[in-house]
């Protein structure tokens, strides 16, 4: 499975990358939203894990940009948003912006992994 991670906090990015790699998935990661839209459009990813608040471009802007470029009509990448800013942003808004799942921070690594797997193949 191909996974793309956009997260500005280095340790969270590294831990998520290592976890997915440990589970035999291929991972590419970004420390901000810059370049993520292009990467998603030009490559095939099964899962995108995006932080809602990042320097330069956050997940909200990324999703709007992807929608404008008809990404959701062309590809079936499962998109998971995560944020510590619960209250301002939640599942409802995430789904409205065509994300598959919203996971509030903090979370445990194994818990995150199993939620991500369920989101990819709900059955």
């Amino acid at each position: 499975m191909n996974v793309i991670i956009a997260e500005d906090e280095a340790l969270i990015r590294k831990a998520l990358s290592l976890k997915f790699q440990k589970e035999k998935h291929s991972v590419i990661s970004f420390s901000s939203g810059v370049g993520v839209v292009e990467a998603l459009n030009t490559n095939e990813f099964d899962l995108a894990i995006l932080d809602v608040i990042m320097p330069d471009i956050g997940a909200r802007e990324l999703l709007l940009d992807l929608d404008k470029k008809s990404f959701f009509k062309k590809k079936s990448t499962c998109i998971i948003l995560m944020s510590a800013y619960i209250g301002d942003w939640g599942e409802e808004q995430a789904v409205m912006q065509k994300a598959n799942l919203f996971i509030p921070k903090p979370f445990r690594l194994n818990e995150f992994y199993s939620l991500a797997m369920k989101a990819i193949s709900p059955s």
Partner: peptide, 21 residues
């Protein structure tokens, strides 16, 4: 406080996830 919590939460969570790993 809200901003402060956000700023503290991220690095702490990074440590926790690395330990989880």
């Amino acid at each position: 406080s809200k901003n402060l919590v956000h700023q503290i939460c991220n690095p702490l969570m990074g440590i926790q996830l690395m330990l989880d790993l």
